[in-house]
């Protein structure tokens, strides 16, 4: 069982590095989103520093969701999914492993890049730290929720937009507590731990919900 999980995980990582542009594409998109913000808002560093955590979180949300539509679709298109379903791994585990691999190649690079981009928005060290830790705790939830959308839209040729429409409302709680935790880290009326622990809880719940709902969706959609 562990050997299968490892094989699947490594295959997805390898594929992401060879075809998806790997970790760089998501980070570049993230950077572009950060770059266009001052053009819309103005180069006022004080203002940017104040809304910086929110900007970083929205950029991370979009960068995560927009890259997810091919998560299951490529396996469905080339027939891999049919064969995967005949393996001894339950489809729920397959979904979970694919989410994990996807997060390693998109979510984690965003977390790593966040401090650098935060500096560009004039964030203080406290806020930088808060944003990074909250992204680390929250992006798995975004990937998992997005995976449900990816499974539901697996049969659609251009499912990316629909995926965002379906899943963005469900990701609002993650956004709320992610930004709250990031802002609480740089001083505020509430302690950092309160929103942060709820954020962790949301991530854990998504980690349970996504494999169940995603696997069910794949079974239903692949008929």
């Amino acid at each position: 069982m562990m050997a299968m999980i490892q094989a699947l995980f490594l295959r997805d990582i390898r594929l992401a590095r060879r075809v998806g542009g790997g970790a760089t594409l998501g980070v570049v998109f993230f950077l572009i989103l950060i770059t266009i913000m001052p053009f819309a808002i103005g180069p006022d560093l004080v203002l940017l520093a104040r809304i910086g955590p929110a900007v970083l979180w929205i950029a991370a949300l979009l960068a995560t969701l927009l890259g997810l539509d091919r998560l299951f679709q490529s396996d469905c298109d080339d027939g891999s999914l049919d064969a995967l379903r005949a393996s001894d791994l339950p489809l729920e585990v397959i979904v979970l492993v694919k989410c994990l691999a996807h997060w390693m190649m998109t979510g984690l690079p965003l977390v790593v890049a966040a401090p650098a981009f935060g500096v560009m928005l004039g964030l203080e060290p406290d806020a930088l730290w808060g944003v990074t830790v909250s992204l680390l705790a929250g992006t798995p939830a975004l990937t998992c929720l997005g995976a449900i959308g990816a499974a539901l839209t697996v049969s659609l040729r251009r499912g990316g937009l629909l995926l965002a429409i379906l899943i963005l409302p469900f990701s609002i709680p993650v956004l709320i507590f992610g930004v709250s935790a990031a802002e609480a880290a740089s001083g505020g009326t509430i302690p950092f731990a309160t929103p942060f622990l709820i954020l962790c809880a949301l991530s854990l719940m998504a980690l349970v919900l996504a494999p169940l709902a995603g696997a069910q969706a794949l079974r239903q959609m692949d008929e």
């Binding site: 094989a7 027939g79 791994l89």
Partner: peptide, 28 residues
């Protein structure tokens, strides 16, 4: 069962050996 449909279940970015090794591990 081994099910081989119309579609090949192969990743075009991986080599033949990589594809087969993956399936060997998954279907073992």
């Amino acid at each position: 069962v081994h099910y081989l449909g119309h579609k090949d279940g192969l990743k075009s970015a991986l080599t033949a050996a990589e594809n087969l090794n993956f399936w060997a591990a998954m279907m073992a």
